[in-house]
């Protein structure tokens, strides 16, 4: 199990002035594990993600990532008429391996085309990226995140701007990728029903880690301590999810 570990977070703490953003957060993630992070607004979910992907440095504690990381950010940049093609956006994910002063090789462009196929947006490669629909654009961002063939995939609210149908098929795609590529997936989401449906383990965060357990083992007390005022909304979502799945 130790050798399958792709992420180890130990006692992660981050403060802005006197305000705690994250306090003593510890957890680990292994290959083939799909973990969902839930919590109310301002709970520190995105800060946690930023620390893991290296966008934040002045924290205490340690973060150990084994292997490459693919990252799908919250509200990715999108301009309808920006003159960049879908293929060029995916190729951006290969930049680190390719390096400066070079052009992408034919085999790298082939990798790009394969990624478009894997994420179900083949045939759109020549389109201007901004003209894709919300669901297609999210798959484009996923293709870019997968370009470096990561062992750990991190997604920050990937459901934003995607309709219900799009969300379902997106989560099915993640599940398929997890199994096929045996990667660890860490996802922050406000879509609690989907998190319970798609993820193996759930982490409830509100400054500290209130629970880290399999989806069907979470107790109301754990949820209450994490969600405080948002608890009612959360319970309703969970009940709705359970009702749908008990039929």
């Amino acid at each position: 199990m130790e050798r399958d570990r792709v992420l180890q977070v130990e006692d992660l703490t981050y403060k802005i002035g006197s305000a705690w953003i994250l306090r003593g957060v510890s957890f680990s993630l292994s290959r083939g594990e799909f973990a969902g992070i839930i919590g109310p607004n301002g709970a520190g979910k995105t800060t946690l993600i930023k620390a893991i992907v290296g966008d934040l440095s002045d924290y205490s504690g340690s973060i150990k990532v084994t292997g490459r990381v693919g990252y799908l950010p919250q509200n990715p940049e999108r301009s309808r008429d920006f003159p960049i093609s879908v293929r060029e956006v995916v190729a951006m994910g290969l930049y680190k391996e390719n390096g400066p002063f070079k052009r992408f090789s034919k085999s790298e462009w082939n990798t790009v085309d394969t990624l478009l196929k894997t994420t179900g947006i083949e045939g759109l490669g020549r389109r201007r990226a901004g003209t894709l629909s919300g669901g297609e654009y999210q798959r484009l961002m996923l293709a870019r995140a997968l370009a470096s063939n990561p062992e750990l995939l991190i997604l920050d609210e990937p459901e934003a701007g995607v309709d219900e149908m799009g969300k379902s098929s997106f989560y099915r795609l993640l599940e398929k990728l997890k199994n096929e590529k045996n990667m660890g997936i860490l996802m922050v989401s406000h879509d609690i029903g989907m998190v319970f449906e798609a993820c193996d383990t759930i982490m409830c965060i509100n400054k500290t880690l209130h629970c880290h357990t399999s989806a069907d083992m979470i107790s109301p007390e754990q949820l209450k301590s994490a969600f405080s005022t948002d608890l009612d909304l959360f319970i309703r979502s969970r009940d709705h999810f359970e009702r749908e799945h008990s039929v």
Binding site: V53, G54, Y71, P73, P76, F82, G93, Y95
Partner: peptide, 10 residues
């Protein structure tokens, strides 16, 4: 196109 992610990708 995306300064933040460009930085992320090196």
């Amino acid at each position: 196109y995306d300064e933040k992610m460009a930085r992320h990708y090196g």
